[in-house]
Simulated scan of single mutants.
Amino acid sequence: MAELSEQIRDWVAAPRFWHLATVNQDGSPQVSPMWIDVEGDHIVFNTAVGRVKEENL
């Protein structure tokens, strides 16, 4: 796995909304605005069990 550069870490840590887009079973898009963060060399986000994005992923 590639390491995250300082530029990417700073960009992810900045206070902004990100959007995760997935595809529903019927082919329609599902987009969730969310916060993301960095843990070690991973970009992370959270969701609740049973949410549409969790099911789609």
Score class of each variant (00 low, 15 high):
residue 1 M to W: 08
residue 2 A to S: 12
residue 2 A to Y: 08
residue 3 E to P: 02
residue 3 E to T: 12
residue 4 L to H: 02
residue 5 S to N: 05
residue 5 S to G: 07
residue 7 Q to S: 13
residue 7 Q to K: 12
residue 8 I to N: 02
residue 9 R to C: 08
residue 9 R to S: 04
residue 10 D to K: 13
residue 10 D to H: 04
residue 11 W to G: 04
residue 11 W to K: 11
residue 11 W to S: 13
residue 12 V to K: 01
residue 12 V to D: 03
residue 13 A to I: 00
residue 13 A to D: 10
residue 14 A to K: 07
residue 16 R to S: 05
residue 17 F to R: 04
residue 18 W to V: 10
residue 20 L to R: 01
residue 21 A to G: 08
residue 22 T to N: 08
residue 22 T to P: 10
residue 26 D to P: 01
residue 28 S to K: 10
residue 28 S to G: 14
residue 30 Q to V: 01
residue 30 Q to I: 00
residue 31 V to G: 03
residue 31 V to T: 12
residue 33 P to E: 13
residue 34 M to K: 01
residue 34 M to A: 04
residue 35 W to A: 14
residue 35 W to D: 06
residue 36 I to M: 15
residue 38 V to D: 09
residue 39 E to I: 09
residue 39 E to M: 13
residue 39 E to V: 15
residue 39 E to S: 13
residue 40 G to T: 08
residue 40 G to M: 05
residue 44 V to D: 00
residue 46 N to W: 04
residue 46 N to T: 14
residue 47 T to S: 14
residue 47 T to V: 05
residue 48 A to R: 11
residue 50 G to T: 05
residue 50 G to R: 08
residue 51 R to H: 10
residue 52 V to L: 08
residue 52 V to F: 01
residue 53 K to R: 05
residue 53 K to H: 13
residue 54 E to H: 14
residue 55 E to A: 13
residue 56 N to L: 07
residue 56 N to S: 08
residue 57 L to E: 02
